[in-house]
Design a protein around this nucleic acid. Structure first.
Lengths: 267, 267
DNA sequence: CGGATAGTTGAGTTATCTCAAATGCAGTGG
DNA sequence: CCACTGCATTTGAGATAACTCAACTATCCG
C-alpha cells in the first residue's frame, strides 16, 4: 500500500529531548565567530546586530533594536505552520529544519537551518511563511521585531544588498532541491545533500579534516531527499562500503570527496 | 539501464517550428487585457508600462523606459542558460518554460511562464539566473533594461510592494514544486499541475467553461513532474477513463474538478 | 500523400517502498 | 551497575510505482 495512506511515525509529535553536543560550539563566543567567517556576507542578521552595537557605542542607551535570544532543546517545534508572528529569527547555534507537511503525514524538508541562517528570508515581509520549523539539536536563536529589522535593513544600502543576496541564494537552493527531487536517483540526492551541508558548514568554519558534526537521523535525510529511512540506510551503507564516507558518534567524515562528487554527475 | 546514462530525445535541439494558435489571443490588444485581469496586481511589468505611459502623457517625449517587444516561434530557445543579459523580460502572449538541465540530458522544468510572468523575478537583480527559457507556443515578450526597470520599481512604493509580492509568490511555487516532486505520486503531481495551470490561467481570464488552451506535450508534463512521457501518457489516459478530464485539439476540459482535487490529498 | 513528431500500448525491468524481525544504543530508574 | 524502555539502524524478502524498450497508431503540415 502506498505511503500516502499510511501515516508513519513522523506524524507523532516528538517528545523526548536528546541533547546534542556541538563539537564546534564555544557557547559564549557564538556571535563573534560569525563576524570572522566567510559566510558573513550572507549572514544578514549578525551584520544587523553588529551595526546596532556600533550605534549603541556611539550613542549609549539608544539601541533601535530589540532582539530576544532563546534556547530550545533538541527535537522541538520552534515555529508552527500557521503561527503568525511579527518576529524574524535567525539561528545562532545548532541545527533546525524547515519543513512542509502534507495532511496525511508525508513531509518534505525544504532546508536545514545552520547557524547564521534566517528561518526564511521571506519572513522579513510575510508573517506566515507556511513552514514548520523544528530543532534537530539544541538550538539557540535570536528574534527581531519584523518592523524594526526591515526598517534598519532598508535604511542601510549595504544591508539591503546583503539581504537581496541572501534571498537569491535561498531561492537558488530551493530550485536545486526541486531538480534533485525531480531528476536525480537516491545516491545522487544523498551525495549532494552531504556535499551541500559540508560546503555550508565549511563557510562557517565548522569543518575540520573533512569532518563535521552530523546530527541528522535517517528520517531527516529521508524527508529531505524524498526517500524512505530504510532506503537511506541502505544507500549510506553502500557509501560506507565504497569508502566514500564514515559516520560515527554523530561525526561524518568524507573519505573520497572526488568520488562523491562524481556521483552527482556534475553540478 | 538508468535514465541518467541514456540521454533521450530531450537533449536534441528542437528545430521544427510548430506555430500554435492561442484561443484567447486577440493579438492587437494583448496588453490592455492585463490591465483588466485579476492577475494585474502580480503583473509587475504591465504596471510599469502603464505608469510609463502616464509619464509620457504628462510630459510628451520623456519616457524613461526603453522596452523592446519580440515575437519568437514555438519551440525555440529564448534565453540560454549562461546568457548574461542586462534585460529583464516578461511574457506578453503565449507559453514558455523555465528549465534547469543536467549535463546528461535530464531536465527539470521549474515553471511554465504564462502571459504576465517575468522570466524570473530574480532577474531584476541577477544578470544570470541559470535557467533555460524556451517557447512552447509562439511567444511575444517584452524586455526592459534592468537598470531602468529597477530604478522605476524602487522609486514607486506600490510597484515595489507588487514586486515583493511577486517574488514571494514565485518562491512559494518553487517550494510547492519541491514538495510535489519529493513526496507525491505521479497521479497527484499531474493533477496538481493541471489544477495549478487552470488557476493561473483563470486569473488571466483564459479559462471558459472549465476549458483552456493546453499546448503542453507529454514531454513538457514529464519534465515538469519528474516523470517519463510514457508514464504521463498512461496517467492521463487513466484520468480520461475516470472522467476527470478530456483533452482534444489542444484544449483541456476539467470534467470533475472535485475528484481531481481529491486526488491531491488537500493543499 | 509523405515525413516527421507525438501519443498509445504491451511486456519486461528496476529503483524504491513496505513490512517485519533483529540488532544496536542511549538514557532511566532501581 | 544492570536491566529496561524507547528510539534508531540494519537487513531480508516480497511488492509496486515508475521506467525502458519497442512496435504501433495518430496527428500535423507541407
Amino acid at each position: 500500500m502506498s505511503m500516502r495512506n499510511h501515516p508513519t511515525a513522523r506524524q507523532v509529535q516528538i517528545r523526548h529531548e536528546v541533547p546534542q553536543a556541538n563539537q564546534f560550539d564555544d557557547s559564549t563566543s557564538g556571535d563573534s565567530r560569525f563576524a570572522a567567517c566567510a559566510a558573513y556576507e550572507l549572514n544578514l542578521c549578525e551584520a544587523v546586530v553588529k551595526l546596532d552595537q556600533a550605534e549603541v557605542d556611539r550613542h549609549p542607551g539608544t539601541s533601535p533594536l530589540i532582539a530576544s535570544v532563546h534556547t530550545i532543546p533538541a527535537r522541538r517545534t520552534i515555529r508552527q505552520v500557521n503561527e503568525w508572528s511579527d518576529l524574524v529569527s535567525t539561528i545562532c547555534r545548532g541545527w533546525a529544519t524547515s519543513t512542509v507537511a502534507l495532511p496525511d503525514g508525508r513531509r518534505q524538508i525544504l532546508s536545514f537551518l545552520l547557524p547564521g541562517d534566517m528561518f526564511s528570508v521571506a519572513s522579513l515581509f510575510e508573517s506566515n511563511p507556511g513552514h514548520l520549523i523544528e530543532s534537530i539539536t539544541e538550538v539557540t536563536y535570536r528574534s527581531f521585531k519584523r518592523s524594526e529589522l526591515s526598517k534598519i535593513i532598508f535604511e542601510h544600502p549595504d544591508l539591503h544588498a546583503t539581504f537581496t543576496k541572501a534571498w537569491i541564494e535561498e531561492k537558488r537552493q530551493t530550485e536545486q532541491l526541486a531538480v534533485d527531487l525531480g531528476r536525480r536517483m537516491a545516491d545522487e540526492r544523498i551525495s549532494r545533500l552531504i556535499l551541500n551541508l559540508m560546503e555550508r558548514l565549511a563557510k562557517r568554519g565548522m569543518v575540520k579534516d573533512q569532518t563535521f558534526e552530523f546530527p541528522l537521523r535517517h528520517l531527516h535525510i529521508a524527508d529531505a531527499t524524498g526517500l524512505t529511512p530504510v532506503h537511506v540506510s541502505r544507500t549510506l551503507s553502500e557509501f560506507r562500503r565504497s569508502g566514500l564516507i564514515t559516520i560515527s558518534k554523530r561525526l561524518l567524515t568524507v573519505r573520497d570527496i572526488a568520488k562523491l562528487q562524481r556521483l552527482t554527475t556534475l553540478q
